[in-house]
C-alpha cells in the first residue's frame, strides 16, 4: 500500500483497532478457559463472603469460648451463652476445641487472608517493582547493586527468610505483612527488570525518545504498559503464595495468634485433636487449598490468554 495523506491518523486508528482486537481476543481466550473462569467465580464468592464476615458472624461470638460445646460435629445445634443470653446455635461446620463456630472463624480468617494477600502483593510490587524498573532502565551501577541484593535475598529459602523476619521484628500483623512482602520482593525486582530490559531497546522507545519524551514519561507511558502482563500474572500467583505463607507462619505461631481466627492458627490449634475431631482439621485446610488453587488457576489462565505462545 502506498503512502497517502492522512496515513498517520489511519495508522493510529489501526493500532487502536489492533489494541481493541487484542483485548477482545484476550477476553475470548480467557472466557474459554473454564477452570480459570470458575476460579474467578470462586474468588469473587470467597471475597464477598469475607467482606460480609461481620454481618454473617459476630466477631465477638466466634472468639467467645463455649467449653460445653467443644468439638461439636458439623451440623449439630447446641445451646450457647453469649452476652448473657442463652440461645440455640447451629454449628454448620462444627465447633473447635473451645466450642467456637468453625465456619464463622473460617470466614473471619478468610478476611484476614484476603487482606494479607492483597496488601503484601501491593507492598512487594511497589518496592520490588521500583527497584527492578530502576535497575533495568538505568543499568550500570544501580543494576549491579539491585541484582546483588536480590541474589542475596534469593539465597535464603523464602520461608526461612519470612520466619527470620517475623522472629526478629516480633509477632504482629504488620510484621507478618512486612515479612511476606520482603520475601516476595526480589521476584518482582527480577521480573520487572527483565521486562524493562526487553522493551527498553525496542524501536518505539527510541521513537518516543526522539520526539523528546523524558525518562519519567517514557517509563510511565511506554514501558509500564508493556511490562503489565508478566506483572499481573505474577501478582495473581503471588496472592496465592502469600496466603499460603501467612498460614504457614501462623501455624508455626509466628504471625497471627489465637484467639484471632486465621486459617493457619486454626490448624495449629486443631493439631492436637486430630484423632478426636478431624473436622477441625479438615475445613480450614480445604479453605486454604481451594483459595490458593483458585488464584493459581487464574494466574495460569491469565498467562495463557495473554501469551498464547506459551500454551499447549
Amino acid at each position: 500500500m502506498s503512502s497517502s495523506p492522512g496515513s498517520g491518523e489511519s495508522r493510529f486508528r489501526r493500532s487502536l483497532k489492533r489494541y481493541r482486537r487484542n483485548l477482545a481476543q484476550f477476553g475470548r481466550r480467557f472466557a474459554r478457559n473454564k477452570l480459570a473462569l470458575a476460579s474467578v467465580g470462586v474468588i469473587v464468592a470467597l471475597s464477598a463472603i469475607a467482606l460480609m464476615a461481620d454481618i454473617l458472624y459476630d466477631y465477638e461470638f466466634i472468639t467467645t469460648v463455649q467449653l460445653s460445646n467443644s468439638f461439636k460435629s458439623p451440623g449439630t445445634t447446641a445451646a450457647v451463652t453469649f452476652r448473657g443470653e442463652t440461645f440455640d446455635h447451629r454449628y454448620l461446620l462444627g465447633a473447635d476445641n473451645y466450642g467456637r463456630d468453625i465456619l464463622g472463624r473460617m470466614i473471619h480468617g478468610g478476611r484476614i487472608s484476603l487482606i494479607i494477600g492483597f496488601v503484601t502483593v501491593a507492598m512487594s510490587l511497589l518496592v520490588g517493582g521500583v527497584m527492578g524498573a530502576l535497575a533495568g532502565y538505568k543499568g550500570g551501577f544501580i543494576d549491579t547493586i539491585v541484582m546483588r541484593i536480590t541474589d542475596i535475598m534469593l539465597s535464603i529459602p523464602t520461608i526461612l527468610l519470612s520466619i527470620a523476619i517475623v522472629a526478629a521484628l516480633g509477632n504482629s500483623f504488620f510484621n507478618l505483612l512486612v515479612a511476606i512482602a520482603t520475601s516476595m520482593m526480589p521476584r518482582y525486582a527480577r521480573i520487572v527488570r527483565a521486562s524493562v530490559i526487553s522493551v527498553k531497546d525496542q524501536e518505539f522507545i527510541e521513537a518516543a525518545r526522539c520526539i523528546g519524551a523524558g525518562d519519567f514519561r517514557i517509563v510511565t507511558r511506554h514501558v509500564l504498559i508493556n511490562i503489565l502482563a508478566p506483572v499481573i500474572v505474577q501478582s495473581t500467583l503471588n496472592v496465592g503464595s502469600a496466603i499460603l505463607w501467612a498460614a504457614s507462619l501462623s501455624f508455626l505461631g509466628l504471625g497471627i495468634l489465637p484467639p484471632t481466627p486465621e486459617w493457619g492458627n486454626m490448624l495449629s490449634e486443631a493439631r492436637e485433636f486430630i484423632k478426636y475431631a478431624p473436622h477441625t482439621l479438615l475445613f480450614p485446610g480445604l479453605a486454604i487449598m481451594i483459595t490458593v488453587l483458585a488464584y493459581n488457576l487464574i494466574g495460569d489462565g491469565l498467562r495463557d490468554s495473554l501469551d498464547p505462545k506459551l500454551k499447549r
Binding site: 496465592g240 499460603l244 498460614a247 504457614s248 501455624f251 493457619g264 490448624l267 486443631a270 493439631r271 486430630i274 484423632k275 478431624p278 482439621l281 479438615l282 480450614p284 485446610g285 486454604i288 487449598m289 481451594i290 490458593v292 488453587l293 493459581n296 488457576l297
Partner: peptide, 18 residues
C-alpha cells in the same frame, strides 16, 4: 499437581498422620 502446589505442607502432613 495443581492441588499439590496449593496444599499447605503442614496440613498435608496432618491429613496423612490422621
Amino acid at each position: 499437581a495443581l492441588a499439590g502446589v496449593a496444599m499447605p505442607v503442614f496440613w498435608l502432613a496432618m491429613v496423612l498422620i490422621y
